[in-house]
Design a protein around this nucleic acid. Structure first.
Lengths: 138, 138
DNA sequence: AAAAAGATGCAACAATATTGCATTTTGTGT
DNA sequence: ACACAAAATGCAATATTGTTGCATCTTTTT
């Protein structure tokens, strides 16, 4: 059985052509995807609204997570199995290549703890490293 | 002499009413500001475009820096004196309060180093902690 | 197979961001 | 202080991005 199908069923989502297609994009992608990446993809011919709603649904169900960026786009990437609905554990490092512009999830690299000033109570931590990725160094 | 004036002069920027006003907002602000915060501020009555261009100018000159977020807004905050034009050193932790929604720069908390996989060359690191801030805990 | 629940498309709208150009303001040299 | 050059601003137009309501179609359930 296809992986995208498995994932959708596991999360109790009705399986539709659109969801499978978009989920496959993530499964195939090396790095993170923006809404525009999906919309521009020739194999996806859905309404913009459907893409928005699908990404929202996937996020709500812990299938994908959002990645913070400094340009005004939201990036999405597949969650690993540790994520639960409504409570993401995407506490791994995200690497953004300044050359090829790809964003890569480094699941092996966990975010180190930081000591915060008194009175500040951390719930979730994200870390973004900009640099040159493995493919772009020469 | 006013601080905003000093900063503008130091960076070789022509000093205008708009730039002073916006810079003062940052100097007064506790946390980071979004474009909309500035535009909505009653004491600012400039064209949206001017605000965009001013923020861009300040960013280019290392006066303010951008903060990554997962909602699709760009946040800006004052750089400390270590920042140079074109090369930001905003390697401090940003704290986003999930209650009051303020974003605070924790200049005292430096971002710890992480070991990246072979072939990945880091240039800049950012870290975002979500949680409850000092004002909102009870 | 029918009913219920859910997903999708469309249209309208809202918010956000960008660009070119004319006008005004600021900085510079005298 | 004045005139000129350089830079900033405002306005209009346009592009991009995100949201909502509702009718229609598809999937799931019984």
């Amino acid at each position: 059985m296809e992986q995208s199908l498995i994932i959708l069923k596991k999360n109790g989502l009705s399986v539709t052509g659109g969801r499978k297609k978009i989920l496959d994009l993530f499964l195939d992608a090396q790095g993170a995807l923006a809404h525009s990446d999906i919309e521009k993809n020739t194999s996806v011919s859905f309404d913009r609204v459907t893409v928005y709603r699908t990404l929202q649904t996937f996020t709500d169900n812990g299938i994908i997570h959002q990645i913070p960026t400094t340009d005004n786009t939201i990036l999405y990437a597949l969650c690993k199995d540790k994520c639960e609905a409504g409570h993401h554990h995407d506490e791994h490092v995200h690497f953004i290549c300044v050359d090829c512009d790809k964003t890569i999830c480094m699941d092996e690299v966990t975010v180190p703890d930081v000591k915060l000033p008194k009175g500040f109570n951390p719930i979730q931590t994200a870390m973004i490293v900009k640099g040159i990725c493995n493919d772009c160094r020469n």
